[in-house]
Design a protein around this nucleic acid. Structure first.
Length: 379
RNA sequence: GGCGCCAUGGUGCAACGGUUAGCACAUCGCCCUUUCAAGGCGGUAAUACGGGUUCGAUUCCCGUUGGCGCUACCA
């Protein structure tokens, strides 16, 4: 430990003393063809001050600022010079950036002044830290915004989450769609403490947006997901097909956590090809008489004069009563038969969404499997 | 090492001299229930430490400790 510290201390570069070179010495070096970088000649006394919209007034002794490089010996400008020149050129009025730039701001102010330009308004926002409390980086598993989109996060939700890291509207409102965020934002609400990126809360925001955002805004995202998984059908683009899609997505969304859930556990609503989840089968297809009862249910449903929630409900409960079993037994078994899993929206709503044809045929298709067969794939 | 910034539950924010220290996520429990969620209700949990200032400090000042950042011919 101590030796490592001593080592880094020894390796620390000594401050450049070129400023003490006499004119003759400079001429000599230049004559010898020595490459030279151009540094900012920082006053050895006085202070440099600036006002930060978030951190307030700031003052630093010039003696603390080294003669930093402006132009490298190869002629290329450094970041410090570049940003200032570019911002002046573009007439930038507000420089809003991470607090990691706070310490370098005095240098930039010096450049503005040296160039005869008025410094812009600076606003430094707190850093976002990983769970280990160090600045967020690739090493945290993470990642670009793009990777969050790939994971199935909605841009709107991600933005809302990010906005609340280091900023608050003043009251306790947290669900703030972009338009509202824009309306409420002010630099004055920005905090000065670094924030830890809290993944669980991000996921919570995603579920909020998934289930609350206007359905027409959500649909394009769902379409994108379905296309990506090869489940999209053009008939859902307009008319009755679109209306059906909207209703179905609305049915599914309260229990989705990510966009991919629509094509994941929700797959059976968009495709006839789906599998019976092993756990669901084991749990809800135990009763030996099930195949027989589900067959009767299929027949009853096929003969129903009307196809709606209540009609399905009555038909199933009637059968359960006649067979002397609890309705739940048939409900759960039927759910697995028509959507392949235990995790799904309420049964009768699901049946309406799927339509009579599919429900009846899926029930019949499941009979041999329910009876203890080995097949696990339907369709 | 030097300089700077920051410090309220596990996490993100409120309270900008006087509140039983509030909200959300997470967590635990209960209700609801047709699976899984959602939702509703409730619980556990915080002012880093030490000095001041003040009738009164989470809040203002100083110190300590801790964290982070900058300290490159990186950006």
């Amino acid at each position: 430990m101590e030796s490592a510290a001593a080592e880094s201390k020894a390796m620390r570069r000594a401050p450049c003393e070129c400023r003490n070179l006499t004119l003759e010495e400079r001429a000599a070096k230049k004559g010898a063809g020595e490459a030279a970088a151009i540094r900012c000649l920082v006053p050895r006394s006085g202070v440099t001050k600036f006002e930060d919209a978030v951190f307030g007034p700031s003052e630093i002794q010039n003696a603390e600022i080294e003669d930093f490089v402006l132009l490298r010996s190869n002629g290329l400008p450094t970041y410090q010079l570049s940003v200032v020149v570019d911002d002046i050129d573009m007439r930038i009025t507000h420089v809003i950036r991470g607090a990691d730039h706070l310490s370098n701001t005095p240098k930039q102010v010096l450049i503005y002044l040296g160039l005869g330009a008025a410094p812009p308004i600076f606003a430094h926002v707190p850093l976002i830290l990983g769970a280990d409390r160090t600045r967020l980086s690739k090493r945290h598993g993470a990642t670009s915004v793009g990777s969050y989109v790939e994971e199935g996060f909605l841009p709107e939700a991600f933005r809302n989450f990010l906005a609340l890291l280091g900023w608050s509207s003043g009251d306790d409102t947290e669900y703030l769609p972009t338009a509202e965020l824009v309306r409420r934002f002010s630099l004055g609400g920005v905090s000065r403490t670094n924030a830890v990126f809290d993944r669980p809360k991000l996921e919570w925001f995603n579920t909020q947006y998934l289930s609350q955002m206007p359905i027409e805004e959500l649909l394009p995202h769902v379409e994108g997901q379905l296309r990506m998984d090869g489940l999209w059908r053009d008939e859902w683009s307009s008319g009755d097909g679109h209306a059906w899609l909207a209703r179905t997505v609305d049915l599914l969304r309260p229990r989705t956590r990510f966009l991919k859930d629509f094509s994941g556990w929700g797959r059976a609503f968009f495709s006839d090809e789906f599998e019976y989840e092993g756990e669901a089968r084991a749990k809800f297809w135990k009763e030996p008489r099930l195949a027989e009862m589900l067959g009767k249910l299929a027949d009853a449903l096929a003969g129903l004069p009307e196809w709606n929630h209540d009609a399905c409900d009555h038909a199933l409960r009637e059968l359960a009563a006649a067979e002397g079993v609890k309705a739940g037994l048939l409900i759960n078994a039927t759910r697995v038969a028509i959507v392949g899993r235990a995790v799904a929206p309420p049964l009768f709503d699901s049946m309406v969404a799927l339509g009579r044809e599919r429900v009846v045929s899926r029930l019949r298709r499941a009979l041999p499997v329910v009876g203890g067969g080995q097949a696990t794939t339907a369709g």
